[in-house]
Every structure is written in C-alpha cells, then in structure tokens.
C-alpha cells in the first residue's frame, strides 16, 4: 500500500480525497454510509455572514452527464454555524474546511474572523466563484483586482490555511490564480461550476427559476482538468482539483495534471459511497503501478 499523505500548505491530509462544498452538507448526511474520518478532509456547505434563504425553485436541472444547480448559497449564517453546526461536526477527526462566501468584502472578513477560534476548523475555502448569486460570489472571482482584494482582506484577519476556489467562467484563470497567490492564498481549488442554462422546449421556459445555474458532473471534467494543469504549472502553491471526478481514474488524472489533492462533488449524489470507492481505487492504482508514495503522481504527466 502506497503512502497517501499529501500536504496542502500546513495541513497534512491523510489522503488526497476531499469532498466539494455544497455537495456534502456538513458531513453528517453521510455518517450512515461510512466513516467520514477516512477522508483527507471535508469542505462544508458555504457559510455567509447572515442567513440566506437561497434562490427560488426549481433550483436544479439534470443535463447530459451532469446537472445545473442554482441553490444560491442557502445557509443560516456564520453565527448559527458556530453555535449549532460546529458542535455537531467537531467530532470528526479529519480536516474540516468551511467554504466562505458573502456579498461584501467585510462580510467575508466577518465570517473568517468568527471561524478563526474554532479549533477543528483547520482552514477556510474562499468561494469567489459561485455563479448563482447576484452580488458577491463569482463577481469577486472574475477579475484579478477583486479576487486579490478579497484574499488580501481575509488574509489580514485569518492566519490558518486559506484556500481560494476559482471560477472557470473567466478568460484567463491563470492570471486570477497568480493574483490571489500574490495576496497570500495558501492553496487553490480549481474549479467551481461552469455557468450554464437549460430550456424546456415544450413549455418554452427556462428550467431553472433563476434561468442560469452552475454546471457540474462528468460533463465538466475535461475543462477542469485543463484548468488544473494550466494553473498548477503557473503557481507555487498547491492546487486542489475538482470538476466531475466520479472514480479513482478521474482522481489520478487530476493528480497527474498537477493537483495535490482532489474534491469529489456531484458524484456524491449519484453514489453516496463514491469517496470511499475513489480512495480504495487510488490505493489499487498505486499498487498496480508500483507507486510507493502518492506524491510521485502529482504533476507526473508524461508528454
């Protein structure tokens, strides 16, 4: 069995398998299926400074090899998280990373400051890439200036690990990656969902109440893989790859493209056991290829 430990800044992950924010609740939803502590880390549902009801219904549409969602960051706000959710999840013996979003820079700072004292929250993932909110979210992540400004502001108040989750809905993801790296991001998550839409030809109406939504699932994998490859070559901080990962082979491909760890998202809906299957499959791949340490695979693409 290969050594599976990887390092994201100063976080040592027991293995590179993590969950993607918004697809895994707070981990508790999966307790019935397997021991969540087996994973390298979990990324929670987005947390904002105030309660958010999220978007109108319908919020989802199935699309070929994937889905669109426009949930719109529904959550009860950071105070509720600290008081009611954290006490339930601090039992986990793996990295719990809270996905942080808001509509203002001050809001991002407020959430980060309130999460800072929570011992078991070992890092945050700045969500500057949600395509489903009118203000904030992706609005911050689509220009170098605003992406850098959010990162800098949060860096000023948060001294644990900061991961910045990038949007693929940009012309040059590498320049955004470099901009947030320069302002103190410790790692990057690449990618959030791709903005898309679905139409019902029979009714001639949009399927989603918000008209557009974020595309995820295997449909986005080649785009995600390309962006992980581009970004990881251009920055010195670790990249966490995500986008359509559904099995161990997908995960290995992301590592070869340059990701240090991976996140599994939409596939959790199709198979609640998928994270464990990916973990076991990575082990099996390493054995089959004589890989002694998973780190040998990172960026190990042969040309």
């Amino acid at each position: 069995m290969a050594a599976l430990e990887v390092k994201i800044h100063d976080l040592i992950l027991k293995n590179p398998v993590m969950t993607a924010s918004g697809t895994y609740g707070y981990g508790l939803e999966f307790d019935d299926f397997y021991d969540v502590n087996r994973l390298g880390g979990i990324l929670t549902k987005a947390c904002t400074s105030k309660n958010r009801d999220g978007n109108a219904m319908p919020r989802m549409a199935e699309t070929p090899s994937g889905m669109l969602n426009s949930v719109g960051l529904q959550n009860k706000g950071v105070d509720y998280f600290v008081e009611h959710i954290y006490p339930q999840i601090k039992k986990y013996n793996t990295h719990i990373i809270v996905n942080v979003s808001d509509s203002t820079i001050d809001g991002y700072k407020e959430v980060a400051e309130k999460l800072m004292p929570l011992e078991k929250i070992t890092g945050i993932e700045l969500n500057i890439s949600c395509p489903n909110v009118k203000e904030g979210g992706m609005a911050f992540g689509t220009s170098c200036d605003t992406a850098a400004a959010v990162t800098k502001a949060v860096r000023g108040v948060y001294n644990k690990t900061i991961i910045v989750k990038l949007s693929p809905n940009v012309t040059d993801i590498v320049s955004i990656a470099k901009a947030v790296e320069a302002e103190g991001a410790d790692a990057l998550s690449v990618i959030n969902t791709l903005m898309g839409m679905a139409i019902n030809a029979e009714t001639r109406r949009p399927v989603l109440a918000m008209v557009t939504g974020g595309l995820s699932g295997p449909a986005v994998k080649p785009v995600a893989l390309r962006m992980v490859w581009q970004v990881s070559k251009a920055v010195d901080i670790p990249v966490i790859g995500l986008g359509g990962i559904s099995n161990a082979t997908d995960a290995i491909e992301f590592l070869l493209a340059g990701a240090t760890a991976i996140q599994i998202g939409t596939a959790n809906f199709v198979d609640p056991m998928v994270c464990i299957k990916v973990l076991e499959g990575i082990n099996e791949y390493c054995d089959r290829h004589g890989v002694k340490d998973i780190n040998e695979l990172i960026g190990g693409l042969r040309y």
Binding site: G22, T23, Y24, G25, E29, F30, K45, D53, G54, M57, P58, R59, M60, A61, M67, N69, V71, Q74, T266, N268, F269, P272
Partner: peptide
C-alpha cells in the same frame, strides 16, 4: 415531488418554501 439531486439533505436543491423558511 420536488426535483431532487442527493436525496439526503446535502445539496438543498429540493427545498420547499414554508412559513419557517425553506
């Protein structure tokens, strides 16, 4: 019978508006 993705409360795609929120 709302449209649903995960079925286990993880994604919040299927919410119904109630007097106590979604």
């Amino acid at each position: 019978e709302n449209m649903m993705a995960c079925g286990i409360g993880a994604c919040l795609c299927c919410v119904a508006p109630t007097h106590e929120g979604n």
